[in-house]
Amino acid sequence: MHIALLAYDHVSPFMLSTPLAVFEAAGAAYEVTVCALDRQVLGQGGLSFNVLASLDAATAADVVILPGWRDAREPVPQAMVEVLRQAAERGAVVVGLCLGTFGLAQAGLLDGRRATTHWAEAERFAACFPAVDVDPGALFIDEGAVVTSAGVAAGLDCCLHLVARFSGQAEANRVARQLVVAPQRSGEHAQLPERPAPASLAEHRVADLLEALWQDPRDTPSLDVLAKRAGVSLRSLTRHIRTRTGDNLSGWLRRARIARAQELLARGSPIELTAVQCGFADGQAMRLAFKREHGMSPRQWAAKQRLDYRL
Rank of each mutant, 00 (worst) to 15 (best):
A61H: 02
A122G: 12
G137L: 15
F49L: 15
R113A: 13
T101K: 00
P67N: 08
A127G: 05
N50M: 10
I65D: 05
A127F: 09
V146I: 05
A107I: 04
L66K: 03
E89G: 01
L104K: 13
V134P: 02
Q44L: 14
L99A: 14
L97C: 04
F129Q: 04
D62V: 03
L110F: 08
F125T: 08
A150M: 11
Q78L: 05
A145N: 09
D62H: 11
G103E: 06
R124W: 12
F102P: 02
V93H: 02
G45D: 09
L104Y: 11
D71S: 11
Q44Y: 04
R85A: 15
R114C: 13
A150R: 03
A72I: 10
A122Q: 05
T117W: 01
S48R: 14
A127P: 08
A60V: 13
P75K: 00
A127H: 13
A107Y: 02
R113S: 13
E82R: 11
A79Y: 00
G137T: 14
R73E: 13
T117G: 09
D133Y: 02
M80H: 00
G46D: 07
S149F: 01
C128W: 10
A58P: 02
F23W: 06
Y30W: 14
A53E: 13
A138H: 07
D62K: 06
E74N: 11
Q44W: 06
A92M: 08
T59W: 00
G45K: 09
A28P: 08
Q40V: 15
L104D: 08
T117A: 13
A92S: 15
P136D: 11
A88Y: 06
R39M: 09
L97Y: 01
V34P: 01
L37T: 13
I141T: 14
D38Y: 11
F129W: 12
V41C: 07
V41I: 15
P136L: 08
